[in-house]
């Protein structure tokens, strides 16, 4: 296995396949990725439950299978077989569409994530990969807003409103933080961004951008301390108050897939992607993603929830100016010493 990976890594693909074969390869890669991804998302839920339990002096789910390893299966089975309660007052089509949107957008982004240097570890190396991610993450918010709106329930509406306010507060700093990386790497392609980090990871030359992006990413995932749209104690379950069974499961899945996605993006953009000594490249990628997922869980166990107006303040008064300053300084440095930064990057 490791030989194969090393082989694939050492020999960049020179062959150009015919179009139909490319299509088949893309579909196969997509299917494999989807399978791996859904399994990992289910186990991310399991990991979260066990790690939270460990941090809180509890046991956590340990009954289904050895150490509870079959728990995700039991969860999925339960969610699939639950009775579906559709509120009669909901706006039907939007109500059905909302959970699908978040699942689709967060899964689609995985098409541009490189898990290794070879063509076999990326579905398609889009030359605007980073923009693709930003576009889809903005689309994903529609899911939350529409769910809140179409449920026709007061708590859901409040959740949707909060999601809107949250989105406009963190999307700008998030995009601007990435501009620094794009400047340094000179490309939007995620694979090339990773290649640019073979010497020095971008976390070293873009520490401020990294901090801004990390905070914005937690906000993007709508988890503590930014879980305002679904703040349990305040607005019951927020935007998904009226959802049950599989439709709720899709929101749930969407949340964990987007945690994985954001971890992948952070790993790719700031932590050098697959780069690392000794181990095969995809394993490095997995280790980094795993560490970031753990970080997300750790945050959830530690922090209280921010208030609505504090989040806006954080986004507009701190993150946005910081991100802008980061872009300006990076650009200025690049102009003044093109060799220095490029050399560090390449």
């Amino acid at each position: 296995m490791s030989e194969m990976i090393a082989l694939a890594a050492s020999a960049p693909p020179a062959v150009v396949y015919p179009l139909y074969l490319q299509a088949i390869i893309a579909i196969v890669k997509g299917a494999v990725l989807l399978f791996v991804l859904l399994t990992l998302a289910a186990y991310a839920v399991f990991a979260e439950r066990r790690i939270l339990a460990f941090m809180q002096g509890r046991v956590g789910p340990n009954r289904a299978g050895p150490f509870g390893f079959l728990q995700p299966l039991a969860d999925v089975f339960k969610l699939l077989t639950k009775e579906e309660a559709n509120p009669p007052f909901a706006d039907k089509w939007l109500y059905y569409a909302a959970p699908a949107i978040i699942t689709i957008t967060s899964m689609l982004t995985f098409a541009v994530i490189p898990f290794g240097p070879s063509d076999w570890f990326i579905i398609t190396d889009l030359n605007v990969g980073l923009l693709f991610f930003l576009a889809l993450s903005s689309l994903g918010v529609y899911s939350i807003v529409l769910a809140g709106w179409s449920s026709n329930s007061k708590y859901a509406a409040l959740g949707g409103l909060r999601a809107t306010a949250q989105m406009i507060s963190y999307e700008l700093p998030m995009s601007l933080a990435l501009v620094g990386v794009v400047l340094a790497a000179g490309t939007f392609s995620l694979r090339e961004i990773v290649c640019a980090q073979s010497g020095l990871w971008f976390i070293v030359i873009q520490p401020v951008g990294f901090a801004v992006f990390l905070i914005a990413a937690v906000a993007e995932s709508r988890r503590t301390p930014f879980d305002l749209p679904e703040a349990e104690n305040e607005i019951v379950a927020g935007f998904h108050t009226e959802y049950s069974s599989m439709k709720f499961a899709l929101f749930f899945l969407g949340e964990y897939v987007s945690i994985m996605l954001l971890s992948c993006i952070i790993a790719v953009v700031y932590l050098g992607g697959w780069h690392g000594p000794w181990l095969p490249p995809p394993l490095w990628m997995l280790i980094k993603v795993g560490a970031l997922v753990f970080f997300f869980i750790w945050i959830r166990a530690t922090f209280p929830r921010l208030r609505y107006d504090h989040l806006m303040e954080l986004g507009w008064k701190w993150l946005l100016p910081l991100a802008i300053a980061n872009v300006v300084i990076t650009a200025a440095l690049l102009l003044a010493f093109p060799k220095l930064v490029q050399g560090a990057g390449k």
Partner: peptide
Amino acid sequence: VGAMTPVFY
């Protein structure tokens, strides 16, 4: 206020 851990402690 949204911190889930103190209650277990």
